[in-house]
Design a protein around this nucleic acid. Structure first.
Lengths: 155, 155, 155, 155
DNA sequence: TTTT
DNA sequence: TTTT
C-alpha cells in the first residue's frame, strides 16, 4: 500500500516558464526541462541523448519560477511522476505524463552574457552574479511543498 | 550539458510481467507498477491516490523479472524517465512516457496465500517465504545496468 | 550556496527503537538500520555486505516509530546526513554521523509468527496482515517533516 | 536481505582533491564537500547550515576528480554511506563515516577568474564557459561504477 | 574548508 | 544488531 514515487532531475530549461494565474490566488507554472546524458558508443564516439520533461509547479513554487527562472536556467528538481488520462475525440484513451515539482534549486544559467539569470529584482549583489546563484524553494524540510505560504518564499 | 534523470519507485505490480524475447538474445519486459500515497484531507478523511507507471526492463533485468516477478510483487526500482514521440494516423504529435529500469529489488508480495511470490524455482527455503524475500538485480554498483552479462544474475 | 543532502535507505532494524521523551513535548527516537548488499565476487561466491546506519527521528516521526517499529521491521527512509562534532576528553576532534529522517515508510517485518508487525491497534484488516502493511509517515508532500502536528500522524 | 543505501549530494568542494596513487594502478581520491541549506527561522532571519561530507572515489572516478576538480568546484554526487570501524589506542570503538562515490557530475566552479575549471582541452565553446561546463563520470548507466576501465573516462 |  |  505505502509507496514511493520520486523523481530527481538536473538540467536546463528549454524555454521561459509558462505561468497561469488562476482564480483564488492559485498559480501554476509549466516548465520544459532538458536532461542530457552523454556517453561513448562502441566506436568510441561521444553520443548525446536529451530527454525533455514537462514540469508542473504550483503556487509558491510557481511564483518563484516565474520570477527567477528563464530559458537556459539550470535547476535541480525533486518531484513525482503524475499522469493525466482522458479520452480524446475519437474515444481513444490518452495519457500525458509530467513531473509535479516538490522542490527545486537554482544552479545557474547557460545563457551567458550579462543578462541576469535569476530574473532581476534582487538587491543582493551576491545573487546578481550570473553563475550559480543558488536558491532553493524549500531549503528547510519542514516546509517542503508547503507552497501555499507566501512567507515561505526563500528570500 | 551534464544532466541527471533519476526515478525511484516503490510499489506493487498490477499484472504479471509482459516479456518479449527478441532476436539476438535480446529480451524486453514491460511492467505496470502502482505507487500509492495516502493522506488525510482537510476533513480528516483518509484519501488514497494511486499512480500507475509503465516500466521497461531489458535483457538480464527482463529475465529476472520474467522469472521472479508477478502480479502483486512489491519492488523497489531505480531508473530514468524515457519518452517515445511519434506522429499518429491523424498527424498529431504523440508522446508516451515510461520508466527505463536500471535496477530493482524485490521486497515481497501482496498476493498472500501459499503461492510462491518469487516465481518458484529457488531451492533456498529462506526465499520461499512469502514475505520480503529480497533480491536485487544489481547489488553491486560496478555492474549496475550491465545486464548483458548473464552471469550477473543475482542468484 | 544552494545544496542537496539526501539519503535513501531501505533495510531492517537491528533493534527496537530507543525513544526519549524530552521536556516540552519533544520526542526523539534512535534507530539502528541495516542495509545489506549482496553480490558475487570473482570466484562466483555470493558475498554479503551490511552497513549499519544510525537514524534519528523527531516528534511525530519518533512517535510513529515508537508505536509501530521494532527489531526486524523493514522500512524505506528518506533523510539527510547530519554530523555532530565535538572534542573528547583528550582534546581530540571527534565526529559522529547519523541520518536525520525526514520521512519513512513501513514495508513489513521479518519477525514472522503471529505477532502484529505494525504494533497492534489498527482496526483495518488490510493493515493487520503481517506482510508489507505499508504505512508512510508523510505520504503527502505538503506535510513532509511537519512533524510537530500530531494530527498528521498517518492513521 | 535486499537493501538500498543511496546518497545524493550537491555542493562545493572545500579543498582540492587529495589523491593517492597506490600500487597496482589503483587510485583513491578524497574530497571534502559542503552542502548548504538555508531557511528562515521564526523571526524571519535567514539561517545557513553547512554540512561537510567526506567523499571517497576510486580509480577512474579518482582520476577524473584529480584532473578536473578543485577547491570550489560544484558537483552532483551519487554514492552510498560507508563506515569504517576500529578500536583506538584506548580500546574505544571508533567509527568514521564517509560517502563512497558511485558517480559524479561537474556543474561549475566558483573560483571565477579566467582559469578553466574543467581542466582545459575542450574545443566546444559551450564547454569553455566557466559556468556549469557539465561533465559526468558515468553518464551511461551500463558503466556506472565500472571505474576500472580507463576508456570509460568521459572525454 | 565551499558557495551565495 | 537486522534480514535472506
Amino acid at each position: 500500500m505505502a509507496g514511493v514515487n520520486k523523481v530527481i532531475l538536473l538540467g536546463n530549461l528549454g524555454a521561459d516558464p509558462e505561468v497561469k494565474h488562476l482564480e483564488g490566488d492559485k498559480v501554476v507554472a509549466n516548465l520544459r526541462l532538458a536532461t542530457t546524458e552523454s556517453y561513448k558508443d562502441r566506436s568510441g564516439n561521444r553520443v548525446e541523448n536529451t530527454e525533455w520533461h514537462d514540469l508542473e509547479l504550483w503556487d509558491g513554487q510557481a511564483r518563484v519560477a516565474e520570477q527567477y527562472l528563464k530559458k537556459g536556467s539550470q535547476i535541480y528538481v525533486e518531484g513525482k511522476i503524475k499522469s493525466d488520462t482522458w479520452q480524446d475525440d475519437q474515444g481513444n484513451n490518452r495519457k500525458r505524463t509530467k513531473v509535479r515539482v516538490q522542490s527545486f534549486t537554482m544552479l545557474g544559467s547557460r545563457t551567458g552574457g550579462q543578462e541576469d539569470a535569476q530574473g532581476g529584482g534582487q538587491s543582493s549583489p551576491a545573487q546578481n552574479s550570473n553563475t550559480n546563484a543558488g536558491m532553493n524553494t524549500s531549503s528547510t524540510p519542514a516546509y517542503d511543498g508547503n507552497d501555499s505560504d507566501a512567507d515561505d518564499l526563500p528570500f
